[in-house]
Amino acid sequence: MLRPTTPPDISSQTQRQRIIDAIVESCAEKTYAATTISDIVGGARISRTTFYKHFPDKRACFDAAVDHCVTELQEAAGAAHSPGDRPADATRKAATAVLEALAERPGLAQLLSGDAIAVDPAAVEHYRRATIPALEALWSGEEDGAAPHLDPRLAFGQAQVLLLNQIATGKSDRLPELLPELVYLAVSPFGGHEEALAQSRLAAADATSGTAKR
């Protein structure tokens, strides 16, 4: 009997995805520093040879995992708001969606907030560049004219430290608790303190009534 044939590019894609999932899981469990190629290979249920067909080393695999996480979060953020939303509302919805995605897979949060710092500050810069311009774009149509608000780079770093602490404290299953603060941080650089507080309260209210995507 003939074995069902899987097109090679598809099976290769699956393998790559399994490897990425495995490094995310291992980093979440024991940090990047302590993760070995054996951990990744074991978690992905592939051979060492297959690993090296996809990535030259652990670091390259980690970078691919970061890229993958960033893309996933960008998609979640993009799908959460619609063109008709006010910038402040769109920002709140995007921040809420990102936190929900992280809460579903705390491994992503660990990878982005903790391990990226330990591996290479350049990795942090990489996804900061994927985040801040996306937020700025939401506000680009605003004739704001107000004094420049808080520094978005700092807000980004604050969000990262908040997530890292929640994970380090063993509360990675309770990431949604950070929703009011994260929404505040996402809105305040562009909309200012009062607007950020208002959005933060809205997000908290939505979360308790279960209508986050209103």
């Binding site: 700092l154 770093g157 990262q160 430290v161 908040l162 602490n165 505040y184």
Partner: peptide
């Protein structure tokens, strides 16, 4: 927490 995070960041 926001304050400590800002300092660290």
């Amino acid at each position: 927490q926001l304050a400590v995070s800002a300092i660290l960041a």
